[in-house]
Nucleic acid binder design. Structure first.
Lengths: 174, 174
DNA sequence: TATTTCGTTTAGTAATTACTAAACATACAA
DNA sequence: TTGTATGTTTAGTAATTACTAAACGAAATA
């Protein structure tokens, strides 16, 4: 059981790739983040290519979405036209950033469609048993989404959702 | 803008399918849930087939995973060998159930792999700068996962994570 | 201007995942 | 026992998504 550091790092990258896939992200994204996370210095695109085995194209696009999610940061050095990437180490900040990203995009559009269903029902009001049933159910779902939404927004607003806050939450929940 | 109820229902099913896909579930799953959610009575497998347009095989497997997640409930009627399915309407209960489901499965295995990386590092202790750096980072990630994990476990333990609790959480977060 | 060095885009391929059609299994009924 | 009504499994197909290879573009340098 005397693994070299580089073997251990490889396993770690593998593990994060799995986790990435589990959350519905490409596994390459997990690998890129892992490589950056274990590097003491920011890495150029080509260095990431070398260490992950992906191609430049793939890394280019995936590192960009990672940056949009706030999981990595892009920087430049004076007199060097390469871009350098480093992992975000404050995961709570990253969560906030991801939530913010998701606020827009597909999810919001889908949630909005529930709201629209509700509006359509109200616009075609009928004194009918099934109609009422459907109306109540859709309304309940919409309220649920609203609750989730305000929770997400609250998290986004937090200056820093640190461990202390998590334990605070836990104590409220008893 | 005078939609029929059945058109409205169709749109709703479509919307939930989208949401389902967004969260990384097959869109058919969303459709099945939506159909059940809008039905005042529990539906048989064949009725679900009819209303979603999926095949029996697909509905059979997907309704099963929905049941495992606690989003639908299976029941039987005396003197009728069909199974009947109804949607869970307490979404907070459903969330708990889903979290519980995820506790096992792939996710836990992946998270465990981070713990293993940490153990491997400790087993091969070296007084080396890079080694220390990697060790600290992996440790930080592991602590983060632990925090998430205990949060999930706390939610699971809740009798009912109702709206009142959500607002309680919000107040703690200020 | 031509050349080099970088990042991006694109068009196609590989891999994965969702789904279908049909065979199968089980339990009940005749 | 045979036939019928159900749910499940399986083997294959369709659709989607991740990824590659290579062309492109832009910016800096010569």
């Amino acid at each position: 059981m005397s693994n070299t550091l580089s073997q251990i790092k490889k396993d770690f990258v593998e593990g994060l790739s799995q986790i990435s896939r589990f959350w519905g992200f490409p596994k390459g994204m997990g690998a890129i983040f892992a490589v950056l996370y274990l590097s003491p210095t920011a890495l150029s695109l080509d260095e990431i290519v070398e260490r992950t085995g992906l191609t430049k194209g793939a890394v280019s696009t995936e590192v960009r979405t990672l940056a949009r999610m706030g999981l990595v940061h892009r920087s430049t050095k004076l007199g060097d036209r390469k871009d350098y990437y480093a992992a975000e180490t404050d995961f709570y900040a990253a969560i906030r950033s991801i939530l913010q990203e998701r606020q827009n995009s597909e999810f919001d559009r889908a949630v909005r469609s529930v709201k629209e269903t509700l509006a359509a029902l109200e616009a075609n009001w009928v004194e009918d048993e099934e109609w009422h049933f459907v109306y109540e159910r859709v309304k309940a779902l919409q309220e649920f989404f609203d609750a989730i939404d305000s929770l997400a927004k609250a998290v986004i607003r937090l200056e820093s959702l640190g461990l202390s806050n998590v334990t605070k939450i836990l104590s409220v929940l008893k």
